[in-house]
Amino acid sequence: MSYRLSFLEELEAESIHVIREAYAQFENPCILFSGGKDSIVLTHLALKAFYPARIPFPLVHIDTGHNFEETMTFRDALVKRIGATLIVGSVQEAINKGFAHDEKGVSASRNTAQIPTLLDTIEKHKFDAAMGGARRDEEKARAKERFFSHRDEFGQWDPKNQRPELWNLYNGRKNQGEHFRVFPISNWTEMDIWNYIKKENIQLPSLYFSHEREVVRRGDTLLANSPFLTLKPNEKITKEVVRFRTIGDLTITGAIESKAHTLDEIIAEVATAKDTERGNRADDQRSEAAMEERKREGYF
């Protein structure tokens, strides 16, 4: 026997270690579950970390109300299968109560309205650590994240004053009212995620695979037709063969034209992709520092 791990096995071991640290160091952790592939992989890793016990903390979904139906069906089936507790933080409810606001106009999204909803959910349920599936390769501000990332009592991130993180020693100490975001899959790339999904035979929402869908072409991206979409003048709905590379709020997640039906086809497509996966996320393209600014405010 050779005592070596493949990089996927090593990444898995690192992530499981981080998830167990979060569980052991905090009183009330949770997983932020969006229904996207990264949070699905994170949930899969949490299952492994505590096997044969169930995941000893809840999954939290911040629901923008603008969901793909497939994501919701998938979420509910997964939660049932693994016997997890699901907590939903509703953006619509936050808007009704007046601490979040709906944007106006054709490029309106509920992306920023997620921030107060998320912070409110964390406060209401007294979560002291929220684990997320963010990866450092996704975006340049995320490349600076720690595994254990401190948030002050307003839920804010101070990127210039982060705690140094050495070896695999994670410092989760905090004062009352503060919390942590924990990112167990920090070191994974998009390609690693897909290869791992294949290796572990992890189920995904059908949105990730090629299908026919009504879309509108806006700039470089294809947005799904839905009751929440406001058409600009001259825009029209067409039917295209598409799939999604990331899944978030329906109104901001662009589809790509793709015939990739299987994981192998998706992996081949990702390997030759010319653009990053967040390249058609309208939320990131608002400015050079769009992600950093949202993260400072408490965005995941």
Binding site: F7, R142, K144, P159, N187, M191, E288, E292
Partner: peptide, 27 residues
């Protein structure tokens, strides 16, 4: 590699930045 706004403005790396790449042999 300079991911933070201040880093880009000042043209310096303040923090540790992690970058990923792979070849057929290694990640």
């Amino acid at each position: 590699t300079d991911g933070l706004k201040d880093e880009r403005e000042q043209g310096i790396t303040i923090d540790v930045a992690y970058r990923y790449f792979s070849t057929p042999k290694r990640k």
